[in-house]
Computed example of a mutant assay.
Amino acid sequence: MNATYSILIADDHPLFRNALLQSIQMAFTHTRLLEADSLHTLVRLLNQEEEIDLVLLDLKMPGTNGMSGLIQLRAEYPDLPIVVISASEESAIVSQVKHYGAFGFIPKSSDMKTLIAALRQVLEGAPYFPEEMLNNGHAFDDVSERIASLTPQQYKVLNMLSDGLLNKQIAHELHVSEATIKAHLTAIFRKLDVKNRTQAVILLQEHHS
């Protein structure tokens, strides 16, 4: 494969990140590799770089927990191919990753041959999900379904709520009015079937645990 690719590896474990980097370098000689150890660094690199062909994303690293990083990236960079590489290999996790818009899922337990074959497949434009790991028809519990019904902006508001921000602060961060935030909260409470901010935050934390 002679094409030049830019791949961004986002994982906070230096040993795994380095092993992945070396494996890709051996298999894809004309590949430019970038590294990020947090969601903040990942977003900064995405904003700096003109073109990234693929992001390899760990589900748990600073700035993200569970599906929150994937959902945020999908909302902000809708055309960016994202493949999750995770030690969480339960079928429900794989199905959620697919539902939230990832282009693939590679288990961290994969051997070199499987890893390289999966990367070749996604770089050639075909998604990769291990069939034996997909939980067909039973991917979500009720909480996940409700969280998934939120729009990207509503999800962002909910996460800021979870960080303890007030309506005024959220409005300032998102460059909208307080009235807009109140409207978002009303919609969030309705979709999550909760009555107040505290219940919404608890639900989100349960989803991420």
Rank of each mutant, 00 (worst) to 15 (best):
A187R: 12
I106G: 01
M67I: 13
D11Q: 08
S88I: 11
L115K: 02
G101A: 13
E206L: 00
Y155L: 12
I24E: 05
T41Q: 14
K191S: 11
N135K: 05
L80A: 10
T114E: 12
D163A: 15
V201Y: 04
A183G: 12
N196P: 08
S209A: 14
S38F: 09
M67E: 11
F129Y: 08
I71F: 00
K60M: 06
F189R: 10
A200M: 09
P62K: 00
S68T: 14
I7V: 15
K156C: 12
S144D: 15
V176I: 14
D37P: 05
E90P: 00
E206Q: 07
I202S: 06
A27G: 08
P130E: 15
A118W: 02
P62M: 00
V176K: 10
Q72H: 10
D141S: 04
Q121K: 08
R120L: 00
V157L: 03
L70W: 06
Q169D: 15
S23V: 04
E89S: 06
S23M: 08
E124H: 09
A117I: 13
L185V: 11
G69V: 06
R44L: 11
A171P: 09
D193L: 13
T114A: 13
N65Y: 05
F140W: 05
E206A: 01
V97Q: 08
Q25R: 06
T4L: 08
K182W: 13
P78F: 00
Q22D: 09
A10F: 00
H30W: 02
N159E: 15
E145L: 13
R146Y: 07
E49V: 10
Q154C: 02
A92S: 03
Q121P: 01
L73Y: 10
Y155F: 15
E206T: 01
P127H: 01
S149T: 09
R32S: 04
M67T: 14
E131Q: 10
R190W: 05
M112C: 11
M61V: 09
M26R: 07
L166Q: 13
G101M: 08
G63A: 04
N196Q: 05
Q121C: 05
A19E: 09
L39I: 05
K108M: 04
T31Y: 14
P81S: 04
A118E: 03
I147Q: 08
H99T: 07
A171I: 02
L20S: 07
L46G: 01
P152Q: 13
E132V: 14
L161I: 09
F140T: 06
L115R: 01
Q22G: 00
L34K: 06
D163K: 15
L203Q: 12
S144Y: 13
L166K: 14
T29C: 02
